[in-house]
Simulated assay, not measured.
Amino acid sequence: MGTKQPLSVLVVIHTADGQVLLIERADKAGYWQSVTGSREGEESLLQTACRELLEETGLVATEHQLTDWQLHNRYEIYPHWRHRYPDGVTHNDEYVFGLQLAQPQSVQLAPGEHTAQQWLPWQQAAELVFSPSNAAAIRLLPSRLGLE
Rank of each mutant, 00 (worst) to 15 (best):
V11H: 00
V11K: 00
V12E: 00
I13T: 01
I13L: 10
I13H: 00
I13Y: 03
H14M: 03
T15H: 12
T15R: 13
T15K: 08
A16S: 14
A16V: 12
D17C: 13
G18P: 01
Q19V: 07
Q19C: 03
V20W: 06
V20F: 12
V20L: 04
L21K: 01
R25G: 03
A26V: 05
A26H: 07
A26C: 03
A26P: 02
D27E: 14
K28V: 08
K28S: 04
A29Q: 07
G30L: 06
Y31W: 14
W32Q: 11
W32A: 00
W32K: 07
Q33S: 09
Q33K: 14
R39L: 12
E40N: 10
E40P: 00
G41A: 15
G41K: 07
E42G: 13
E43W: 10
L45R: 05
L46Y: 13
L46K: 14
Q47M: 14
Q47K: 06
T48Y: 05
A49W: 03
A49D: 02
R51H: 04
R51S: 07
L53Y: 04
L53A: 04
E56H: 08
G58D: 05
T62G: 11
H64Y: 14
Q65C: 07
L66V: 09
D68V: 02
R74Y: 13
E76S: 05
I77N: 08
P79D: 10
H80Y: 10
W81F: 11
W81H: 07
R82V: 02
R82E: 15
H83C: 11
P86K: 03
P86I: 11
D87V: 15
D87T: 15
G88A: 13
G88I: 12
V89N: 05
V89I: 15
T90H: 08
H91M: 07
H91P: 10
E94F: 03
E94P: 06
E94M: 14
Y95V: 03
Y95K: 10
V96E: 05
F97P: 02
G98P: 02
Q103P: 05
P104D: 08
S106L: 09
S106Y: 12
V107N: 01
Q108M: 08
L109M: 10
L109T: 04
L109D: 01
A110P: 02
P111E: 13
G112Y: 11
H114P: 00
Q117A: 04
Q117K: 06
Q118H: 09
Q118M: 06
Q118N: 01
W122E: 02
Q124A: 06
Q124H: 12
A125N: 10
